[in-house]
């Protein structure tokens, strides 16, 4: 385990001894340590309730929204201790995409893409905004589909388009890391395929952490995989190695469908 963290040189994100508890003493994530490789897709998998989403949401401190959730441990972003950053800064450097597509229903497609800037009160010239919108939508291969309807509400798009819009919204800030929480679980197979292709394309520019309950998705698109079970990080390694030759018995049982 610890071997592998050492193996990942210059991790963009380094998680150290992270634990999260919902009720005092009951840990949903316990003592997880891992480094995340830059410009790679890292998948977190495991059976439901294993703590994979909880771990992901600890990275951008979404747990701070809920007073009864307690997080301990450290996370370093580019070597910098994130506990010294404000939530605002941290979340701008780490983008997030959610399980269900959630474009802001009261905003147009255009406004959804630059919602991060608007919410943060950052004023820009129109040309600057236009460029960010275009670049972000091109990044998610949505530009050609929506360039003539930027003023329409994002909720008119199909589920897959909405999810790509949400990815564009998360990318508009050029974050260092993008967190995706089962981003395709609400999508049909065709839309899922598009998002998966997009993620492979995006890793050229971004570091991606993907939570998925879908083993074959992890196998298809991730470079590294974590297997979590009952809040513990059981195994972490190159996806290829893990799928061919899992070290831990629990990983093997999970990958062979003994439990899910």
């Amino acid at each position: 385990m610890n071997e592998l963290i050492k193996q990942i040189k210059d991790p963009v994100l380094s998680i150290q001894n992270l634990s999260v508890s919902y009720n005092k003493g009951k840990y949903a994530v316990s003592d997880v340590s891992a480094g995340i490789k830059k410009n790679r897709v890292t998948a977190i998998m495991g059976p439901s309730g294993c703590g994979k989403s909880t771990l992901l949401r600890a990275i951008n401190r979404m747990h701070d929204l809920y007073p009864n959730i307690e997080t301990i441990g450290q996370i370093f972003l580019n070597g910098e201790d994130t506990s010294t950053m404000s939530n605002i800064m941290l979340r701008r450097k780490i983008g997030m995409v959610f399980q269900h597509p959630n474009p802001f229903p009261t905003m147009s497609i255009y406004d959804n893409v630059i919602a991060g800037y608007k919410l943060n009160g950052i004023r820009m010239k129109k040309a600057e905004r236009d460029e960010i919108v275009e670049k972000s939508l091109k990044d998610v291969v949505l530009w050609d589909e929506v360039k003539d309807s930027l003023t329409k509400k994002g909720t008119f798009l199909s589920g897959g388009q909405q999810q790509r819009l949400c990815i564009a919204r998360a990318l508009a800030f050029r974050p260092d890391v993008v967190l995706l929480d089962e981003p395709t679980s609400a999508l049909d197979p065709v839309a899922t395929k598009k998002v998966e292709e997009l993620l492979i394309e995006l890793k050229k520019q971004y570091t991606i952490i993907l939570v998925t309950h879908n083993m074959s998705q992890a196998a298809r698109i991730s470079d590294y995989s974590m297997f979590m079970y009952l809040g513990e990080l059981v195994e972490y390694g190159k996806t290829k190695n893990m799928f061919i030759n899992p070290v831990d018995k629990r990983t093997e049982e999970y990958l062979t469908g003994k439990f899910s």
Binding site: S86, I88, M89, R92, K93, N120, G121, I122, A127, E128, E131, I132, K135, F173, R174, P175
Partner: peptide, 19 residues
């Protein structure tokens, strides 16, 4: 080319936003 790296410096108005 515009800078798309606004996120990498602590924004000036952060304190006033928190206030």
């Amino acid at each position: 080319m515009i800078s798309l790296t606004a996120n990498n410096k602590e924004p000036k108005g952060l304190d006033s936003r928190l206030f």
